[in-house]
Design a protein around this nucleic acid. Structure first.
Lengths: 212, 212
DNA sequence: CCGCATCCGGGGCGATACTG
DNA sequence: CAGTATCGCCCCGGATGCGG
């Protein structure tokens, strides 16, 4: 990207990560840990393949990303963030939190969705209101790979991937799921739409935002 | 900007503020409170005037910015952020902090500079190590308008604008000033370059990062 | 199949000139 | 002062090709 030519840390940051798609690539690598070219692409519906290759090169040149060959059996390349790259987490967090209100309206026509992306809304809405209680896990299913909410010690963390024997499991469309997590839809209404719930409902209330 | 078409809060955020120049415009409005078109432009060296007009319209449409006529004597328009716009502060903070390391190398050839931009490096480096001591102020002068550091109750805040009777006043090139604030250059070395210091040196040590 | 490179059309961006 | 108008360029998007 063309430099802004300003001796300002915000401008310098945008010189590096201000290009279109760049921060979304960082998002995918942050959520996945390490990934192959094709996996990254799957998480970035709409990106042109040459742009992805360009950006990955750029990010590597800037020291935000490293590539290394996958362990022997497979002949593939793995991409992962460097420490400097992972330091962008506060940036993504801030952006993700700021963007949460846009999710309330539901997906726009044609919007793609991956359940990993629920991490920001989830962590923005939720908190553990019973810090003393034993840890609990919630499985979120909105199509594709599930996401797990780990509730313990006053915090709620969202991590991609399945889990064995969650305390409760929610399956619904992304929009309904967000409505439930944000407390804007109660469980009964959500069920009348497309929510399926299995397990202990009380775990939901433990982490939901306090009613308005 | 063309939407990323992803039902993800990070992507939705970037749909709105991911355009080139947009976050820098928000930066200027955040630092200035409210400003006229020409003032904003002065803080964005390099921007094309039609782009600035476009972006301001966009930001207004998105509800991040409002324009209102200036108080009677002057016939001018004032631009200022709405609450929703000011909520971007954590985003700018995160970006600004992440970008600070790029400032260490000094300005690139042709880089423009405004002293307000020192806010992020200043708040990133500094802390009040004598929370009990009475408040103090430091004037930073790097050309153009000065910036004031307000040190009190364990915190250091940087705000644009001059101040009456600061405890200490520093004048130097931006690069030297940053070196001093970050503790990478000691005062003697800085003085041998272009630093001029008036007032109580101890206030500097009160807020400087602890020596390595 | 994985990880690109190439080609091409369209639009966002940059610079300057101009105007109410 | 606060923008519009214009124009060239380059970045981006989409499709396809292609070597390992």
């Amino acid at each position: 990207m063309r430099s802004y030519g300003q001796y300002c840390s915000v401008a310098k940051a945008l010189d590096v990560v201000g290009d279109r798609w760049t921060l979304l690539i960082v998002r995918e690598l942050m959520l996945r840990g390490s990934a192959r070219y094709t996996d990254i692409r799957e998480g970035l519906p709409g990106i042109a393949t040459n742009l992805l290759a360009d950006r990955l090169r750029e990010l590597e040149r800037e020291g935000l990303l490293a590539r290394r060959p996958a362990p022997p059996p497979v002949a593939a390349m793995l991409f992962e963030l460097t420490d400097r790259g992972r330091e962008l987490e506060p940036v993504l967090d801030a952006l993700g939190r700021w963007g949460v209100p846009f999710m309330a309206e539901g997906p726009c026509e044609g919007d793609e969705f991956r359940s990993r992306w629920l991490t920001w809304p989830a962590e923005a809405f939720l908190a553990d209101h019973e810090p003393g209680a034993p840890p609990a896990t919630v499985e979120l299913n909105a199509g594709g790979e599930p996401v797990v909410l780990e509730i313990s010690a006053g915090k709620v963390q969202a991590v991609p991937g399945p889990v064995d024997d969650p305390d409760v499991s929610l399956s619904a469309s992304p929009h309904t799921l967000l409505g439930v997590l944000s407390g804007q839809i109660d469980l009964a209404t959500a069920r009348s739409r497309d929510l399926e719930l299995h397990g202990d409902e009380r775990v939901i209330r433990r982490m939901q935002p306090l009613a308005a």
